[in-house]
């Protein structure tokens, strides 16, 4: 986990489900093939209704046509981000597009867990409804150790909720690295 995550914000509303984050028709691509996996960046957030895509004005593509990388590094969302299908392809797609953190009022459980255990991105919760305050394109900076979120654009700061027990998994880089560090699994193929 980086000490500082900084970049432009992409703002969405409540209950953005994983079908909107990465539509099911694109789940056929390999997540390991170096060329094919880029398709996940290309289609990340591609099924959010255009009026809701990049608030407050909408009609902003997360990844521009013809590109596989997004100009946005931090997603700011309302409640229940990542609900619906358990597809790990969702946090993977955001990461593949270049997103490093999602700041939301709340997360759906499986998306949150996948983000942490796969080490794809840092899911921050906040009691502030930042999706009504932050505008798409604003430059944000998050100090991951203190949880301080600063809008460089607006000159305002907020304190995000502590990551708590998942900080250790994110710091390790995912659940495998964490489990090895904690001695919960041993490397190799000879499991009991």
């Amino acid at each position: 986990m980086k000490k500082v995550i900084e970049g432009r914000a992409f703002v969405v509303g409540d209950s953005v489900d994983t079908d909107q984050i990465i539509p099911a028709e694109h789940l056929v691509y390999s997540l390991t093939d170096p060329e094919e996996r880029r398709m996940y960046g290309k289609y990340a957030m591609s099924a959010i209704p255009s009026g809701q895509s990049g608030l407050p004005n909408g009609d902003i593509r997360f990844t521009e046509d013809g590109s596989t990388r997004s100009q946005f590094v931090i997603v700011v969302a309302g409640k229940n981000f990542g609900c619906g299908s358990s597809r790990e392809h969702a946090p993977f797609a955001l990461r593949e597009a270049g997103c490093e953190a999602v700041v939301a009022e709340s997360f759906a459980r499986i998306f949150y867990r996948n983000s942490v255990d796969g080490g794809f991105l840092v899911p921050f919760e906040t009691r502030e409804r930042l999706c009504d305050v932050v505008k798409t394109g604003d430059v944000l900076r998050i100090d991951t150790a203190t949880g301080e979120l600063t809008s460089v654009t607006a000159g305002v700061s907020w304190l995000l909720d502590p990551l708590g027990e998942v900080a250790a998994i994110l710091s390790a880089g995912g659940v495998f690295a964490y489990a090895r560090q904690a001695g919960l699994i041993t490397t190799g193929s000879d499991q009991d």
Partner: peptide, 15 residues
């Protein structure tokens, strides 16, 4: 329901 990473962990360890 779980994601791929958690499933891979189970596949190797059963936990």
């Amino acid at each position: 329901g779980i994601g791929n990473t958690d499933a891979a962990l189970i596949m190797g360890t059963g936990k």
